[in-house]
Design a protein around this nucleic acid. Structure first.
Lengths: 199, 199
DNA sequence: TTTTGTCGGAACTAATCGTCTCGACAATCG
DNA sequence: CGATTGTCGAGACGATTAGTTCCGACAAAA
């Protein structure tokens, strides 16, 4: 567990990783229990039995903390399948992605970070790199299908990625429809039909 | 300009509609000038030369005011074309919609209302009815094409609407790509291909 | 002229993020 | 061992903001 110790001389008390873990755990629990309302840093500190200063010693801002809680909650959902067929790969990936975003803590963190990104350029940058990572995974899946000759030459990979994640974010932030597995499967089928259709 | 006067007995000073117009105008100007940061009610009141009380006499919350400024800014973009061809109707509608959302004041209002909707259920409801209206317009366009037999029986109209507005909101809120006319045209072509492709 | 409700202006409450201070404590160095 | 250094929990503090309330002035109707 102690792998990133600095190599320079270091005197004084060491940071307590247990405190950081307690903070992350409290953040996830509050995000999960939060009834649509935002989670405050004070509430996280109180729930973790920790001073606010300790939070800001580990994370530079609330958005960083929420994004960390997010990444931890979404762990294992990253890899894109590669079974050699666009339709099934896309269905598997979107189903897993929708399922991850349906987790209450993950959904709340995504929504709160997205909300803060509209005001705070720092949060906007964080969210942007997070989404870029996810885009790259899906784009890789599509590129493999294109290399196999499964896609129409008219297919626009970036637009396909926008359509997939667009539906996810749109439903997540507006809330007019749920992120069900059926919706993921239908979206995968629709995108595969579009990508393979001749212009 | 005085068309919605109450019919009941009314004593006392009348509300000054000029003040309401000044407030809306100030809100739009601040949204346009705002550098990504949010617009505060105090700033709007000061810019309009108006007391905050006057703002809250006309609008129950900041979100209502922003949504009003939004609707006023997006006026005239509502109607869906009906030229009898799915491809050109979709391209015209999405181009006009993207152009409307590219207006700085409209974009800022959309982003700020969306951000507040993640915390405030009242703002969420407002945003939901706004988006429902827009969804209905696009859905009507698709239904007319379906009635003309232009769509594959496998086409899912609501999913198509989700994809169109999904790309719009995703780009608007994440900011990884602009809402250009070229993007609108490409999206329209892609959705038309998807909707007409046989399963 | 009196009553009634809006006007601009400003003080006020409450929530929130992030900074700073405090005494206590732990780890390292001399 | 003892001094130094940096983290700990706890909380005060400044800044910002949404929304409420009070104030004296004013306008429109009774």
């Amino acid at each position: 567990m102690a792998d990133d110790q600095g190599r320079r001389a270091h005197t004084g008390r060491r940071r307590n990783e247990e405190a950081a873990r307690a903070i992350l755990r409290a953040a996830r629990e509050l995000l999960e229990r939060g009834d649509g309302a935002g989670v405050s840093v004070d509430a996280i500190a109180a729930a973790a039995g920790v001073g606010k200063q300790t939070i800001y010693r580990w994370w530079p801002s609330k958005s960083d903390l929420l994004l960390d809680a997010l990444v931890e909650g979404a762990r294992g959902l990253a890899p894109a399948p590669d079974e050699g067929d666009l339709g099934s790969d896309l269905a598997a990936f979107l189903t897993a992605t929708f399922r991850g975003a349906r987790d209450p803590a993950v959904a709340a963190a995504l929504r709160q970070v997205a909300a803060e990104a509209q005001r705070d350029p720092r949060a906007a940058g964080l969210l942007r790199s997070f989404t870029e990572d996810r885009r790259r995974v899906l784009r890789g899946l599509l590129e493999r299908a294109a290399a196999r000759g499964e896609l129409s030459p008219a297919a626009d990979l970036d637009l396909l990625v926008d359509q997939a994640y667009g539906v996810l974010w749109y439903r997540l932030l507006i809330g007019h429809a749920p992120l069900t597995e059926a919706a993921a499967a239908a979206l995968a089928a629709a995108l595969a039909r579009q990508a393979t259709a001749s212009p």
